[in-house]
Design a binder for these strands. Structure first.
Length: 403
DNA sequence: TCTGGGGTCCTAGGACCC
DNA sequence: TCTGGGGTCCTAGGACCC
């Protein structure tokens, strides 16, 4: 009982330690920098001059000063005046993420990328080739360190939830198991918000009925939890607290993208429509490029605004016909913006698309006001522009209004 | 010079239809 | 004068994740 052999699946969760910071450190070392920024109080943060000043990742020494992810840079610097800071580089992160993914693919072809720095592996069936899961975890950890230069935490168990909860334990560079027989000892003493799926607001709701640890939730009445947290969340939390999770590890090919969006915090408040529309065009362009790259088209467009008081509102619109081009997206975004904007000073503007499907898969409804030839021409032009951008970079072509 | 950006999923209410 | 009950679609908003 409670041993790996008696359970159906064998799941690993791999989590890069302080991903953005570790990858920056490795990149620096590769380019001849003498010191390792992982050994000093350091962080990756955006630029506060453009209102992007929050901590995205921090080193272990920085953690000792109480620096936390998503903390404002000003607060972090109060806690640690000597904090060494480095800007984010998402293109570089993708390169390191892909390298790790390629290495993990040697151990199984059932891998789910949960984010740029986390993966689940369904290792069931690979035991015959690479040995017991704990041995594989040790081999993976050692190879990532040696071949890629950074460290990971690995959680080993029988489902995704337990594997993830295992990898969240002591960091960095650790391997933990959390088999069903270990739940009471390792998981139940933790506070409720350490349970995957429980955030601030659910923690508060649970505390109001006296539930403070994961064990409290595990032993609570499921009917009561469903009433307290609504059916889905109540059941999920009760299941998770008891280590129950039968969701499969979903390979990338089997996962359909649900939305594509971009948003930007503007360097200064946007107060007039003309400027807002310029942002909408630039965002529509980026979203459109990604949409066409993925070979998709969209049925719903939405615009998100955040004003200077940090109040966020979002409106969406089901489009009369499915869209693909930047001009179609931009047109929809403008219409939504004009309807929703309350005239407040804006600090963030976002555009996103949902109801995605492969281009042409669903019958296109041709609107009475649309000239099919013109639509086709517009699309052909944009596809040529996409090719040029792919070859020469995103800024190779700019619309007159953006220059 | 406080406070990012990318997502997923769930709920509730109104419109509309039979 | 009293006043159904499903079901679907659409939209806004919130919670949660990294």
């Amino acid at each position: 009982m409670g041993t790996e052999a008696s359970h159906g699946r064998s799941i690993l969760h791999i989590d890069v330690n302080s991903a953005y910071l570790s990858w920056t450190a490795v990149e620096f070392l590769a380019h001849g920098r003498a010191d390792d920024i992982r050994r000093i109080p350091s962080a990756i943060a955006g630029d506060p001059r453009s209102r992007h000043g929050i901590i995205l990742a921090k080193s272990e020494p920085a953690k000792k000063y109480g620096i936390k992810t998503a903390m404002t840079l000003a607060e972090a610097q109060r806690r640690c005046p000597d904090l060494a800071l480095f800007p984010p580089d998402h293109a570089m992160y993708k390169v390191y993420s892909d390298r790790m993914y390629a290495l993990l693919c040697e151990y199984t072809d059932i891998i789910e990328r949960f984010s740029i720095d986390e993966c689940w592996l369904d290792y069931t069936g690979s035991e015959k080739i690479f040995g017991p899961p704990l041995e594989a975890a040790r081999a993976i950890s050692a190879r990532i360190r040696k071949e890629l230069g950074f460290t990971v935490n690995i959680g080993v168990s029988t489902n995704k939830l337990l594997a993830k909860m295992a990898s969240e334990r002591e960091k960095p560079d650790k391997i933990h198991t959390l088999y069903p027989g270990e739940i009471a000892e390792k998981m139940w003493p933790l506070p409720t918000d350490e349970l995957f799926g429980v955030g601030h607001s659910t923690k508060q709701a649970l505390a109001r009925v006296g539930l403070r640890t994961i064990g409290d939730v595990a032993h609570a009445d499921a009917v009561m939890l469903r009433q307290l947290l609504k059916p889905v969340m109540g059941q999920l939390v009760h299941d998770h607290a008891n280590g129950i999770d039968d969701t499969p590890v979903l390979r990338e090919e089997l996962r359909a993208e649900k939305s594509i969006g971009h948003s930007t915090t503007t360097p200064r408040d946007v107060t007039d429509e003309e400027e807002a529309l310029r942002y909408l065009l630039s965002l529509s362009e980026r979203v459109g490029l990604r949409l066409r790259d993925a070979g998709l088209e969209a049925g719903v467009a939405s615009v998100e605004l955040k004003n200077k008081s940090f109040y966020t509102y979002r409106h969406q619109k089901k489009l009369p016909s499915r869209v693909r081009t930047t001009s179609e997206i931009y047109e929809a975004a403008c219409a939504i913006f004009r309807e929703m904007w309350r005239g407040d000073d804006l600090r963030l503007i976002g555009v996103s698309l949902t109801d995605l499907a492969p281009a042409g898969a669903r019958a296109r409804q041709i609107s009475l006001f649309e000239d099919p030839e013109e639509t086709a021409r517009g699309r052909a032009i944009e596809e040529t522009q996409d090719e040029i951008r792919k070859k020469f970079g995103r800024d190779a072509i700019k619309r007159g209004t953006l220059v």
